[in-house]
């Protein structure tokens, strides 16, 4: 078969394939009819074969490029990831995320150690000798912190909109921090580690200072509720960063790149879970923590929230779901 006979014999299929592609682009693949889908899949194979023929016979770069582009479009439609949807998001948050975290619990404990031990040390030392705090934080910052946490009520009674302002700030600030904490893990995990230790020391120092100045009760009743979500989420995003770092430092039997690719998917899911927790934390921190509720009530609610978070991460998704057909290809 020579080139022009080949083209005139095959171009009907090419034209039809392009029509189907345009339709699939307009309607989305799932709304094509069954016959059209099987036609698309037949044509994809036929065009792949045509492309191979054109290449092996050197029938022209232009022809080759055009066929290549058609097959690329078909390939993209045919092999795209299955569509997501709200159900998958809910499922991930209810079961997928805590399961994944438990599968990778080692990273969580290491991250927890990095985030708690330096802070505990700094906090205890400063609680015993408050003058040490000025070596870590400037007097201005300390005064500001003390002013903020010396009383219980901060929002000034009824709803004023300040709660929303604060919530927006916490989302912007905290989720951003968690994202960066995770991303710098790709640099051999060093970025994540520095980040965890640094924040741990600052938080520990502030807590120790406030305890030493006698503001323990208003401070802890303020932070306990949102801390349940916020501190845990930071540890989780630290764990995600360490997953990346480990893949870089110790890829095991894979190449570094493959290890990063495989572990990266785990890490990003952990971060997504952490981000969801930080969203919850931001609302608690914006509305409940600064409210005028009595400190005892805040401590009680806060304790319940800690139990909820720990229970969620430790237990959610433990029951074995019934096997369903069609879940696996």
């Amino acid at each position: 078969m020579n080139r022009s006979r080949f083209i005139s014999r095959r171009q009907g299929d090419w034209y039809r394939f392009r029509q189907l592609l345009d339709r699939a682009d307009r309607l989305s693949f799932s709304r094509l009819g069954g016959e059209e889908i099987s036609e698309l899949s037949r044509l994809l194979r036929a065009l792949s074969y045509d492309l191979a023929v054109v290449r092996s016979r050197d029938w022209g770069l232009e022809l080759e490029r055009r066929l290549n582009d058609l097959v690329v479009r078909g390939h993209g439609i045919y092999y795209r990831a299955p569509p997501g949807g709200l159900r998958k998001v809910v499922e991930f948050l209810l079961t997928g995320f805590p399961r994944l975290l438990r599968e990778n619990h080692g990273y969580f404990w290491v991250s927890l150690a990095l985030f708690s031990i330096p802070g505990l040390i700094a906090g205890v030392l400063i609680a015993l000798d408050p003058s040490l705090a000025e070596r870590l934080l400037s007097p201005d910052v300390l005064a500001q912190v003390e002013a903020m946490h010396s009383t219980n009520e901060r929002s000034g009674g009824l709803f004023t909109g300040r709660e929303v302002g604060a919530t927006g700030f916490y989302v912007f600030n905290n989720v951003g921090i968690a994202f960066r904490c995770f991303a710098t893990g790709v640099l051999l995990g060093v970025g994540t580690a520095i980040f965890l230790v640094y924040n741990s020391i600052v938080i520990g120092a502030i807590s120790g200072y406030l305890v030493a100045r006698g503001h323990a009760m208003p401070f802890f009743s303020f932070v306990i509720s949102h801390g349940a979500f916020e501190l845990t989420a930071i540890v989780v995003s630290g764990a995600a960063g360490l997953v990346l770092g480990r893949a870089m430092v110790h890829p095991g039997s894979r190449t570094r790149l493959d290890a990063l690719r495989v572990r990266g998917l785990v890490a990003i899911k952990l971060v997504a879970g952490a981000a969801a927790m930080l969203f919850v934390a931001a609302f608690v921190e914006g509305f409940w923590s600064p409210s005028g509720a009595p400190m005892v009530a805040k401590l009680a609610v806060g304790s319940v929230l800690w139990a909820v978070v720990v229970g969620y991460l430790a237990l959610a998704g433990r029951t074995r779901p019934p096997e369903r057909e069609g879940d696996r290809p």
Partner: peptide, 26 residues
Amino acid sequence: VLKVAGYPISFWDAFLRNLLRSADIL
């Protein structure tokens, strides 16, 4: 943006590659 195997990216891919901007920008 495509997967290296030539098909469209999933949500996780998009999320991951955009979060890691903070490392790329460093």
